Simulated scan of single mutants.
Amino acid sequence: MKHYITLSVCLFFIGVAQVALGQTRPLYDSASTPELVSGQFAFTEGPAVDKAGNIFFTDQPNNKIWKYDTDGKLSVFMDNAGRANGTYFDSKSNLIACADEHNQLWQISKDKKVTVLLKSYKGRLLNGPNDVWIDKKDNIYFTDPYYQRDYWTRKSPDLTTRMVFVLMKGKTQPVMLDSMVRPNGIVGTPDGKTLYVSDIGDNKIYKYDIMRDGSLTNKQLFIANASADGITHDELGNLYLAGKGISIYDPRGTKVAHIDVPEPWSANICFGGKDKRTLFITASKAVYVMKMNVKGVE
């Protein structure tokens, strides 16, 4: 009996555990907390990891994309970055950016050459692409809420609906997949079969099945009374929701942990580093890292 009590106490103080395939696995050590990398920014967003584990993120008000390499060095990757928000790498190592200065989707090559992939929907200006996920076929799923920017001349949206889109590889026009109060964070599973989208305007997380043609079916309310500015997931299928700190939910939609971040808002997250075990958090004017015991899968 004493053995079992001791084990329970140890797991409690480890703090965070995920049950997967019948095994208990700690997501991070009890002493781990987010470590400040830098607080020199205006508002950080959109982290994305390349194949080597380097992380790229945006400082939207300052119109820059930064790089945090696997050695922990910060550098500016790109100025005049289209007021990029969410980003994600495609299979050819192009950085796809939600460039909402002019409400576009950009493809940015390694040498910083910009190709505008998308700038309208049925002849109307997009609301402002916000977050993005790309499947292994290079189909681009993105959310298009409306957040009035002080650098826009327009004062109202051209589109009356806030939508979730997919831009299929090689196409020039997106397909509308769903509408929400205000869609925001988005991520899919590595097998390309499941998509998660946060309706931050209605405080809900939805789950969809992805069909072979890229369309969505079987919409489910996955988590009620929870929303996310950004979403990522780990190798166990846990979802990490960025907002007021980082909330972690298991594959069944049960909250298993919360990581406090000492900033007003945590906008987005991804896993990076050489071993993909570094949780990278964009939080207001700062960025943080935290060592995890699980790997990311993006």
Rank of each mutant, 00 (worst) to 15 (best):
E263R: 15
Y249L: 07
L239Y: 04
N238M: 02
N225Y: 02
A242Y: 04
G272T: 04
I223N: 07
T232G: 11
E235P: 11
A228G: 10
E263N: 08
I246R: 01
P264L: 06
Y249I: 09
F222L: 05
A257P: 05
N268V: 13
D229M: 07
G253I: 12
A267G: 13
D229G: 06
C270M: 00
Y240G: 03
L241C: 13
A226L: 05
T254E: 14
G243M: 02
I223R: 05
F222Y: 14
P262C: 07
R252E: 13
A257H: 03
S247A: 15
D250M: 09
H233M: 15
V256P: 04
N268Q: 04
A257V: 14
I259W: 00
H233Y: 10
N225I: 00
K255V: 08
R252C: 02
L241E: 01
C270Q: 01
G230I: 06
L221S: 05
D250F: 10
F222W: 14
I246F: 00
K244N: 15
F271W: 09
I248Q: 00
Y249M: 08
G230S: 05
S266P: 03
Q220P: 12
K244I: 13
E263L: 06
S266Q: 11
A228D: 06
H233S: 14
D229W: 05
S227N: 11
W265M: 13
V261M: 03
D229I: 13
L241K: 03
D229P: 07
S247P: 00
E235T: 14
Y240C: 03
T232P: 02
S227K: 14
A226H: 13
P262A: 07
A242V: 12
N238L: 01
K244M: 12
P251F: 11
G237S: 11
D234H: 07
N225S: 09
W265N: 09
I269Y: 04
W265S: 07
D260C: 05
F271Q: 03
N225M: 00
A224S: 15
A242L: 10
T254I: 12
S266Y: 06
A224Q: 15
A226F: 02
I246C: 01
K255L: 07
N225W: 00
G253E: 08
P262I: 04
L236E: 09
V261D: 02
L239V: 08
A257S: 12
I223T: 11
L221H: 01
K255E: 12
A257F: 09
G237E: 12
G230C: 03
I231P: 05
K244G: 13
L241G: 01
Q220D: 09
I259Q: 00
N268T: 09
P264M: 05
H258A: 14
A242M: 10
G237R: 10
L239G: 02
A226S: 15
I246M: 06
G272Q: 04
E235M: 14
H258R: 11
I231C: 04
N225H: 14
A267H: 07
A267D: 13
A257I: 06
Q220N: 11
D250S: 11
Y249D: 04
I231D: 02
P262Q: 06
C270W: 01
G272S: 10
N238E: 01
W265I: 12
P262Y: 09
Q220H: 13
P264S: 13
G253L: 04
Y249C: 09
P262D: 11
T254M: 06
D250V: 10
